[in-house]
C-alpha cells in the first residue's frame, strides 16, 4: 500500500515533466517521418516504416527513462521532500520501489501512446500487423524497465547530469556489446579470451531485447529466445534494483 502510494505520487509528478511531452512529440515526428523514408525506398515500404517506427519507440522510450529516471531520487534529496517521507514508517527500499514503479507506469503509458500513433500509421497504409509486432514492443518495455533501474541506481549517489551521462553510456554500450560477443567467439582459446568473455558477461547486452529484425522480415521468434531474453531482462533488472537499494540503504542525507 505504501509502495503504491509512492508510485502513484511519482506518476503524478512524472506526467507533469515537460521533457516527457517534448520527447513524445519528437518520437511521433520520427514515426511519421518513417513514412517519408518509405517513399524514398525501393522495395517493401512496410519494412521501412516498421523498422524506423520500432527504433523510434526504443530510442525515445530510453531517453524518457533516462531523463526522468536520473532526477527521480536526486530531486527528492535536493528539495528535501525525502526528509518528511523517510520520517514516516516506510523502509528505504519501499521508497525506491515506489519511485521505480511510478516511473514504469509513466513509461508504460508513453509507450502505449507511441504504439497507438505507430499503429494508426500502419493501418492507414493497410499493412498487416502481426503478433510479433506486439512481442517486439513488449521487449522494448522490458528494456525500458532495465534502463530505468540503471538510471535510478545512478540517481541514488550522483547528480542528474552525471547520472544521465552514465545511463546513456550504459544504453550505448548495451547496444554495441554484441560486437564483443562476436570477437570472443572468434578468439583463440586462452587468457585473453577468458577476460573478454568475463567482460561480455558483466556488461549488458541490450540487443537481447531487440526483435525488430524478426518483425520486419516476418521471422518466427523461437520460444527459447523468448524465454532467455525475458529471464535475462528480469534478472538483470532485479540485480540493478538490489544494487540501488544497497547504495540507498546506508546513505546519509545531509
Amino acid at each position: 500500500m505504501k509502495i503504491l502510494a509512492i508510485a502513484l505520487n511519482t506518476f503524478k509528478e512524472a506526467i507533469r515533466d515537460r521533457i516527457l511531452y517534448l520527447l513524445l512529440f519528437f518520437a511521433s515526428v520520427c514515426i511519421i517521418f518513417s513514412r517519408l523514408l518509405a517513399l524514398l525506398t525501393v522495395g517493401d515500404r512496410a519494412k521501412i516504416i516498421t523498422d524506423v517506427g520500432l527504433a523510434s519507440l526504443s530510442l525515445f522510450g530510453a531517453l524518457m527513462a533516462i531523463m526522468i529516471g536520473t532526477g527521480l531520487v536526486y530531486k527528492e534529496i535536493d528539495k528535501r521532500t525525502l526528509y518528511t517521507l523517510l520520517s514516516k514508517p516506510i523502509q528505504r527500499y519501499q521508497f525506491l520501489l515506489g519511485k521505480y514503479l511510478g516511473l514504469l507506469l509513466t513509461l508504460f503509458i508513453m509507450l502505449a501512446l507511441m504504439t497507438v500513433i505507430f499503429l494508426i500509421l500502419i493501418l492507414l497504409h493497410n499493412y498487416p500487423v502481426e503478433g510479433s509486432f506486439f512481442i517486439a514492443i513488449l521487449f522494448i518495455f522490458m528494456e525500458l524497465c532495465l534502463i530505468t533501474a540503471v538510471a535510478m541506481l545512478f540517481s541514488c549517489f550522483s547528480t542528474p547530469i552525471l547520472s544521465t551521462l552514465f545511463s546513456l553510456a550504459f544504453y550505448l554500450i548495451g547496444h554495441l556489446s554484441w560486437g564483443l560477443e562476436t570477437l570472443v567467439n572468434k578468439m583463440p582459446q586462452g587468457g585473453v579470451k577468458t577476460v573478454a568473455r568475463f567482460f561480455y558477461l558483466v556488461i549488458p547486452d541490450l540487443e537481447n531485447f531487440n526483435f525488430k529484425t524478426e518483425v520486419v522480415h516476418h521471422l518466427p521468434i523461437p520460444p527459447k529466445v523468448f524465454i532467455y531474453s525475458s529471464l535475462y531482462g528480469l534478472f538483470y533488472t532485479v540485480f540493478i534494483l538490489a544494487l540501488a537499494m544497497i547504495v540507498f540503504r546506508r546513505r546519509d542525507f545531509i
Binding site: 525525502l82 523517510l86 520520517s87 546506508r250 546519509d252 542525507f253 545531509i254
Partner: peptide, 9 residues
Amino acid sequence: LKCVLGLIF
C-alpha cells in the same frame, strides 16, 4: 534530528 529520524547514521 536527522540522526533521530534515521536520515543519517
